[in-house]
Design a protein around this nucleic acid. Sequence first.
RNA 1: GCAGCCGUAGCUCAGUAGGUUAGAGCGCCUGAUUGUGGAUCAGGAGGUCCCCCGUUCGAGCCGGGGCGGCUGUACCA
Length: 499
Amino acid sequence: MGKKQKIFRPKARIPKGLRDIPAAAVRAEAAMLARIREVYEAYGFEPLETSAFEYADALGKFLPDADRPNEGVFSLQDDDEQWLSLRYDLTAPLARYVAEHYDGLPKPFRRYQTGPVWRNEKPGPGRFRQFTQFDADTVGAPTVAADAELCMMAADCLEALGIPRGSYVMRVNNRKVLDGVFENAGITGEGAEFEARHLTVMRAIDKLDRLGPEGVRLLLGKGRKDESGDFTEGAHLSDEQIDRIMAFTGAGGDDRAAVCARMGELVGDSARGLEGVAEMRLIDELLSAGGYGADRVAFDPSVVRGLGYYTGPVFEAELTFEAETEDGRMRFGSVGGGGRYDDLVERFKGVKVPATGFSIGVSRLYAALEALGKLETETVLPPVIVLTMDNDRLADYQRMVMELRAAGIRAEMYLGGSGMRAQVKYADKRGAPCVVIEGEDERAAGEVTIKDLILGAQKAEEITDNTEWRESAHAQISVPRAGLVGAVKDVLARHTAAR
RNA sequence: GCAGCCGUAGCUCAGUAGGUUAGAGCGCCUGAUUGUGGAUCAGGAGGUCCCCCGUUCGAGCCGGGGCGGCUGUACCA
């Protein structure tokens, strides 16, 4: 007795790596997605939505030995014990969709899709466990004209979002060329050991921007120890091999044709490498025909784009400007990427279906636009608030709100339980342009009072004395009840004109 | 995963060799200023001092373990 009952109170907190998005950001992101969609539509892509969950084996992340899906994907078991996983990108579900509906689809099949994807990884600044991608893919097109088109479209998207030419660049490379360079450098072999080394080399190249050439050389050789003392095992290439790889990664430049020529030298007589170089030449030709110079789409052999399924051209959208933020400078780097994956549908169908796609990292691009000041800001005016002065006249207030809405004005009746002062504070916090007041006095006179909150806020800056504040006209007018809509419209017109 | 730093109110933090009912600013809520946002004034809510174990008469403070956060690194379809 006397002791307080312990009641269980769950802690109100969002799971780590996830986030809530407030109104202004929801609107800004929607506006951004609409811009991208316009560009994708213009290129002829059709929308598609697929489910958030897929069978884990369809995502290709099922671990046969462990008898459960990969750690990196959020998974759960269905009633029938089958594993379901949240999609970790939009490409694997596309492959499943195409395979499932193959016969009925036009080939090539061109679709765009946006939505959240989930990855169960360690979150960090700008890295979340749920984030949004916006993809466009062409499935069933063997020609690299499809790849060239995606690069041009990506550039168009960035410009449509207000990123000026020169502040971004699409960087393009080709897996076949990379393979050719490996072959020519004598990095050959078979089986798992070769695969592992191959991966190690690509991972190393991928870190070029962060670790610099010296760091990458270490990773290509014996290995590298970082500041914390952690050691990363290297690829154990010979010095000569390292030189060749480094020469390749440094072979980029302002002239696409010149880059192709250098690529040609570095692949030697590797058939696969030469095939890749020919693809790059064709892409260059198409880009040039489209008027896309190297300032927009450049060839850069240091682009590797992850590891997994890419089989030909790979590309990355990079923002090249730096932004000043609270904690110093910030580089945005890659905001999207893609490439050719000729094997993905084959997993389901057994037949090769050539495909290529591009994916925009919406959340990162959003952050970049925010820093650039290029977000499309609030276009929705906050609602007009009708105060509830008398609780037995609610029907009257509701009628006012409906009249305003019928006239196309966002409006709401105050639904809280507080007094007049709190109601005006509420309206202020909502950013309402004005409030409508009908108390005892107004009703007796057959009027309503319209109080202009924006004009009032300006006055508040000038007034320090309380009595003056209270006695001032408060930027409000009274009009006959029948003139409600007209008077509110006048206030709104003043503000939209003042913008 | 590995390493380093950190963990007191919604936020930013204070907390005195271990010593009573743990504080400040801001924010939030209520009220006053004769039915009105700001200013001012008065009041109020909100804390398992991250958790557990230990040392001690006594732990926010000391020791051990755990959890969480930040930073770097690894992985990242």
